[in-house]
Amino acid sequence: MCGTSKLGKPGGLAGFLLGAVLLLAAYAKAIDPYAFADRLRDMSVPAGAAYPGALVVVAFEAGLGAALLGGSRHRLVLLATSATFVMFVGIVAWQLVHPDGTAVCGCFGQLLERTPRQALYEDVGFVALSGVAWLGRPTRSDVLPWRSSLLGAAAGAALALSAPWLPLDNQATALAPGTTVGATRLDEIVPELRAGRHLVLLLDRADPTTSARIPDLNERLKLPHGGTPVWGLADDDPELAAAFLWSAAPAFEVRSAPPRMLRRLYRRLPRSALVDGGRVLATWSGFPPDATLDTLARGGLP
């Protein structure tokens, strides 16, 4: 028991901080579970197991986070916490060996993008913090916090299951009002976006509903001579690009982009954004409403 009273405070604070980190991590994954499932697939998780796996991870992190935030420092809770952050370090180390630019996995998904190196330093810090959380741990009176853990896990899973229908696109993706086109990396594909006003449409060229809507968009936006330039962006697939050209006949240019780059910008396709002076002004899930399209066709600002 020696030192418990002195070390109890930093230990408790560390546990509290780790609880907040795990809840934030669970939230970041839960608001776009399909993107997290894609990342799991990239890490060689079988395709069929990726989405259920994503839900399990969200529930686990939320349950653990709730327990820690509730003040529990039960041996099993702290063991699970340390193991989780050690696993994060392992994943980030794997990403360092298989580099792909920016890490959007680890803890915070699209909420906080980091390079694998930054993520590694951060996760090593969390492992150290999980060590601090063991200091001054009450050994007798602490009970396993089943109720708060289950409640946290259920809330995390419920959020993940319902998230696709919730208006969380701007939080869950890198395409949100106020961000620059440089931050979205859209300007790498369409440098014209750095100046002037443009409508950007993120498209799934394999989706028949999208193809069927294109003639209406051409007409409403009075393309190709409408008041607002329009750019389509879609996954880089030459076969789909040709088929889309024949059947949808867009009166605007559709440029191909690497799937991984576009995946940061949407939860579901299609998604649209209005860009003005190199900055995102507004976003829409799907295509903008007809009244907005009419205003854009006249060159106005909706």
């Binding site: 294109i214 003639p215 051409n218 393309l223 190709p224 050209l245 024949w246 059947s247 949808a248 006949a249 867009p250 009166a251 605007f252 240019e253």
Partner: peptide
């Protein structure tokens, strides 16, 4: 040059040039 895309194939196996319009193909 303008969108939506149209194509001219000349010569064609049909003896005369072919004009292809996309969309209402």
């Amino acid at each position: 040059i303008e969108l939506p895309a149209s194509f001219l194939v000349d010569p064609s196996p049909f003896g005369r040039p072919v004009l292809i319009m996309t969309g209402r193909l």
